[in-house]
Design a protein around this nucleic acid. Sequence first.
DNA 1: TAGATTGTTAATCGATTAACAATC
DNA 2: TAGATTGTTAATCGATTAACAATC
Lengths: 212, 212
Amino acid sequence: MARLKESLAGPTLRRLGEYLMILEQRIEEGKEIVSSSELAEAYSNTPSQVRQDIFRLRYTGRAGQGYKAVELAESIRSALGMDDVTHLAIVGCGKFGSALAEHVPFERYGMRLDALFDVDPKVVGSSIRGIEVLHDSMLEDELSRSQISIAGLCVPASAAQDVASRLAYSGVKGILNFTKRRLKLPQGVAVRHMQMACVFMQLALDVKAGRL
Amino acid sequence: MARLKESLAGPTLRRLGEYLMILEQRIEEGKEIVSSSELAEAYSNTPSQVRQDIFRLRYTGRAGQGYKAVELAESIRSALGMDDVTHLAIVGCGKFGSALAEHVPFERYGMRLDALFDVDPKVVGSSIRGIEVLHDSMLEDELSRSQISIAGLCVPASAAQDVASRLAYSGVKGILNFTKRRLKLPQGVAVRHMQMACVFMQLALDVKAGRL
DNA sequence: TAGATTGTTAATCGATTAACAATC
DNA sequence: TAGATTGTTAATCGATTAACAATC
């Protein structure tokens, strides 16, 4: 089980996650060995950067040959903290929230979706992938007796700050905010603002500027 | 209309987008002036970085006072290329695709959603925000007579590569890939892989490491 | 062996932070 | 004026790229 040499920088971490996805696809296709230049081509960076990133793991390939796909994938999983399970909740099971709950392969990446919440009586009581949607009013109770540390926030913008504060109060340590509202949260609770509009915009800009 | 001093670096661009969101919220709340330290607090960086970022725009605030929220927002919009409209399509109107179509405020950020596609006969013919969902087989025709340059790919992973190739062939210049599959596309077509699993994972890691 | 590709160090490049004079 | 906050340059820091000896 590979361990880190030291804690990895943000950019490195992001790339490692992507390499993992590429490796999984290669493994599926039956490939056993991959080289830094192959990964670089798939990710659109340089072999040098790929090797530098892998260098940070306690995994080494074979000079002249390349990396064993399965072993490298395993090292990355471990570097990315997938060895111990992170428990998740999704709050707000409208189209967006329920699409996440249904389609994101959490288990595959060291996470487990443990709870779903909504306020809509039409949704409460139904199940997604075997997880029952609980009423929002159960949130505090449920979180306090669970190990959930991360929540995806998919409620309407108008409810975002309120629900987020309650999540923080109930011991959640990280919130992935898919609403348009910026959140203000107590020290010690991490927030990531996932603005879909921004992502499209960024791409539009890159296209205009002719950047790949 | 503010113009850029030179083309902006990626990290700067991302932050500017976030500042814009913060500014919009402040403007809504009736605030007319914001300072670099206020933005820094909301974004969780330093006043120095905020000023450095704004320095790249052709906008200047007032020493001793701060920035006029509306004007600064306008400069950022312009720097982020929102002055000319980017036309979009979303391919795949399952829960995820239709959630994007319904809830992302594209118009507000210089984009316009012009076309929706799906293969499911239950969905084809219905409308989201006044845009009719066309059958997948219309894709080439529709794109060739439109100005669409960016597409959001929300189809099942198994169809991803095929649809992506057709999009590229039909003249789309940027693809935002929400599927799990890595795409291989011809030179000149930009792809952004939006792996939701990665985003949750990243946050989980940061939480474990105690990084805000 | 010869060719290929890694591991790792050093050099370069770019982004962030600090500092402070200018100015409202 | 005094206090606040900007604009901008210079210093620092970190990330990327280049280079090449080691080795399969």
